[in-house]
Simulated scan of single mutants.
Amino acid sequence: MEISGRITKDAVTAKVSNDREVVNFSIAINDSYRPKGSTELKKIVTYIDCSYWMGSKMAQWLKKGTVVELFGRVGLNVYNNAEGKALGSLTFHTSNIKILVFPKTENASAVPAVQKKNAPKDEPDDLPF
């Protein structure tokens, strides 16, 4: 399954056991629709809790405002609250993350710069565009 959205707050890494860590974050998905017979456009936002188990170093890139494309599966968590009432929540178990857009920041150094390795800085590259 594939979903994409904007991260709502910086990702948090939680230690589950001695050798396992999980990266938890949430995304917002914006959508809109026009009700039948109406000219008014209705906007809705869906918030989805996500978890990433493949490596905790990914958390450093998952900052508030980042637009991501996620691949994975939906999981259901069912539990009883203090009053004994059965409740549930959905979590998107992410297996692959593609960062589409980094958030705008005042401090340009907050967004990592991508540099080609072994390329001289003063010489132009040989790309035709």
Rank of each mutant, 00 (worst) to 15 (best):
W53R: 05
G84K: 06
W61A: 11
Y33D: 06
R34T: 15
V78H: 04
L41H: 08
T46Q: 15
N81R: 10
P112R: 13
R20I: 13
G65C: 11
S89C: 08
L127H: 05
Q60S: 06
L90K: 13
K42G: 00
F71C: 11
W53E: 01
R73L: 02
A86F: 00
P103G: 07
D19Q: 08
V67A: 09
V45M: 15
K15C: 05
K43P: 00
H93Y: 14
R6I: 14
I44Y: 00
T8G: 13
T39H: 11
M58D: 08
N107P: 03
E106R: 04
F25D: 03
L76P: 00
T94I: 04
F102N: 11
I7A: 04
V101R: 15
T94S: 03
K63W: 07
L62H: 02
N96L: 14
V74W: 10
L62I: 05
S89F: 09
G75W: 00
E83Y: 13
W53F: 09
S56K: 12
N24D: 12
D31N: 07
A113M: 10
K85L: 06
K42E: 06
A86D: 00
E83A: 15
N107Q: 08
A108D: 14
G55C: 10
F71R: 14
I7Q: 06
K43N: 11
I48R: 05
P120H: 13
N24V: 10
D122N: 12
S95D: 12
T91F: 02
L70P: 02
S95C: 03
A28P: 06
V68T: 05
Q115L: 14
V16N: 06
V23C: 03
S89H: 07
V45C: 14
P112E: 11
L100Q: 12
S26L: 00
T8L: 12
F25V: 10
D126M: 13
D10G: 03
D49E: 13
Y52C: 04
P103T: 09
I7W: 06
K104D: 14
N24S: 15
E123M: 08
N107V: 07
G72Q: 02
L127Q: 06
P128W: 02
I97E: 08
A28R: 08
A82K: 15
F25E: 07
T13P: 06
A108I: 10
N18L: 02
I7C: 06
P112Q: 15
E2R: 08
M54Y: 13
M58I: 14
K36M: 11
A113T: 11
G84H: 07
W61N: 11
R34D: 03
E69A: 12
A11T: 01
P112K: 14
A86S: 05
A113K: 13
V78G: 04
A59C: 05
K85M: 03
C50G: 00
V68L: 06
S38L: 10
M54A: 15
K42N: 02
E2Q: 14
A28E: 13
K104M: 13
F102V: 07
T46V: 15
R73M: 02
N18T: 04
E21G: 00
H93P: 04
C50Y: 00
V45A: 15
G5S: 01
N24I: 10
T91S: 11
